[in-house]
């Protein structure tokens, strides 16, 4: 484990999916991931990749939870895919059963997590996506584990 942030360049949706898979592969269950990035930055695509890395077979079922708020997928461990875009405060995240999801041994991924920062646990692994061109994205993992680094350098 190291505390250095890790930044990876993505040049396409396929790159973003691949990066997501490498991250997902390195997860074991119990992690909470907070995604930050503006509209169109590729958050949902990164989640598709992470879910795939976690053993969710068909990534077509991974879609935006902006309106439904929570999607659940069955992978190696349960995957809870949340979206805080429509939430106005941290209390609303709790009302969705967020704490129970965090304690369920699965992986919890929250899009627009910066909107509910106060409710995110201290152990949250933050990932930021920044657009820097039509299809170029800079993806920064705040605290990248050894396993993630290994997968991402492969």
């Amino acid at each position: 484990m190291t505390n250095e942030p890790l930044t990876i360049e993505s040049h396409s949706v396929e790159d973003t999916l691949r990066i997501g898979r490498a991250i997902g592969n390195a997860l074991v269950g119990g992690e909470v991931i907070g995604l930050m990035g503006e509209l169109g930055a590729g958050k949902t695509h990164l989640v598709k990749g992470i879910a795939s890395g976690l053993g969710v077979n068909d990534d077509r079922i991974v879609n935006s939870p902006t309106f439904v708020l929570v999607n659940e997928y069955a992978g190696r461990v349960p995957v809870y895919h949340l979206d805080a875009y429509r939430l106005s405060d941290a209390g609303q995240l709790a009302a969705l059963g967020f704490d129970e999801m965090c304690d369920a041994g699965g992986v919890v991924i929250v899009e627009w997590a910066d909107r509910v920062k106060e409710a995110m646990p201290e152990s949250t692994q933050w990932i930021t996506l920044v657009s820097c061109g039509e299809s170029d994205r800079r993806i920064t993992i705040n605290v990248a584990t050894e396993a993630m680094r290994k997968n991402l350098s492969a």
């Binding site: 509209l39 902006t66 309106f67």
Partner: peptide, 17 residues
Amino acid sequence: ATVDDAAGEAFDKVASI
């Protein structure tokens, strides 16, 4: 079915843009 955003979500996000 949609593989990413629903149509209604696209309408709302374009309104937001």
